[in-house]
Amino acid sequence: MTLLLQTLIFGCLIGGVYALMSSGFTLIFGVMDVINLAQGCLLITGAYLSWWMWQRTGLDPLLLGVLSSAALYGIGWLLYKGVVARVQRVDPGLTLVATFAVAVAGEGVIALVFGTSDRSATPSYFNTSFHLGSLSVPKAQLYACIGALVVLGGLYALLRGTFLGRAIRACASSRGGAELVGIDVERAMAQMFALGAATTGFGGAALSVLYQFLPDSQDIWIGRVLCVVVLGGLGSLPGALAGAVVLGLGEALTSTYWDVRWTTAVPYMLILAILLLRPQGLFGITLRREGARA
């Protein structure tokens, strides 16, 4: 019973972090219908940036996430202006190939800059826990999860309560309509893409504390992100949160009760199962929006 509870706590904490890591992908797909396969690469970039600054300054890597996310905001902007917007003009079907290319090249660049050995940030609370009776709550996971929820809450508030957020949602609802109220659609899209990358920067900071990572870890991470959004229904932020918790629990239960070696396979098994059996996602949000044409 304790083991089960312990596993569930662990799964939920990780789920919160996964949700943060997937939020950028979800946002970009929901608004633009673009599958950003560079998401894993952006995440790893955020992790390396936080780790590097932590090494240099000794400050808390999670707090350094603010700086990583600022850097990724810029990278996201460049990625949109330099690649995504251009490819969309030529052939929208190729955006996923282009972002995939960015992911592959990006992995190479990271390896050239940071080398190919295992990294992870180990602040003072690394590997320590709070204890509640016989249960333990690892501090790093807890802080990361709280940080993730704060950032997600901030993103949600930004989308709901600011003009930038309203403009982004308006573009998602109807581009033509957005133009007619005077929104510069191209600019709103670029800001949205950059914003998605910036939240991923926070995700990277969390990753740097919770996991060891290599340049090619991006493969595993894009797999997890895809799993989260497939579970939650592509393009839905609340769906992504729920999907993330399901994945976190699935991985935790697998490593506790089955075999830790199969944990990394959980995201892919879930993806295949969901897409074969229930493509609309666990929570019934459809992959395709049905346009009502009268």
């Binding site: 290319a101 960015v102 090249a105 992995e107 660049v109």
Partner: peptide, 23 residues
């Protein structure tokens, strides 16, 4: 030691160039 990384940059960059310039 950088051979693998350079290959990634090369193929990724080439793929990106093809999608952008010769789609």
């Amino acid at each position: 030691s950088d051979a693998g990384a350079l290959r990634l940059v090369f193929f990724g960059g080439l793929l990106l160039a093809v999608t952008l310039l010769l789609p």
